[in-house]
Computed example of a mutant assay.
Amino acid sequence: MAQVIQTPQQQQYLCKLLGYNYTIVYKAGKDNQAADALSRIDASTLVPSSFHLAVSNPIFNISSDIQWENTTNPELIALHEQLRQGIAAPEFTTLNGLLFHKNRLFPSSDSPLRNIVLHECHSTPQAGHPGILRTIKKLSGSFYWLKMWMMFINLFATA
Rank of each mutant, 00 (worst) to 15 (best):
M1L: 09
A2S: 14
V4C: 11
Q6W: 06
Q6T: 14
Q9W: 10
Q9H: 12
Q10W: 05
Q10F: 01
Y13F: 15
L14V: 14
L14M: 15
C15G: 11
L17T: 13
L17M: 15
G19T: 04
G19N: 09
Y20D: 13
N21T: 13
Y22C: 02
T23I: 00
T23R: 12
I24R: 10
V25N: 09
V25H: 07
N32C: 01
Q33Y: 03
A35R: 09
A37C: 09
L38C: 10
S39C: 05
R40L: 05
D42S: 06
S44F: 05
T45H: 11
T45S: 12
P48Q: 04
S49V: 03
H52Y: 11
A54E: 12
V55M: 10
V55A: 11
S56F: 11
P58L: 05
I62H: 09
I62C: 14
I62N: 11
N70L: 00
T71R: 10
E75P: 11
L76F: 07
L76N: 06
L76Y: 02
I77G: 04
G86R: 09
G86I: 02
I87N: 15
L99E: 01
F100C: 03
H101C: 13
H101K: 15
R104L: 01
F106V: 04
P107M: 07
P107H: 10
S108L: 02
S109D: 15
S111D: 08
S111L: 05
L113Y: 04
R114C: 12
R114G: 07
N115P: 06
V117K: 06
E120K: 08
E120T: 12
E120H: 06
C121E: 02
C121W: 00
H122W: 04
H122L: 01
S123R: 07
T124K: 04
P125H: 07
Q126Y: 07
Q126C: 11
K137V: 02
L139H: 06
G141P: 05
W145T: 06
M148F: 07
M148R: 06
W149M: 12
F152Y: 15
I153L: 08
I153Y: 14
I153Q: 14
I153M: 08
F156K: 01
A157N: 09
T158C: 08
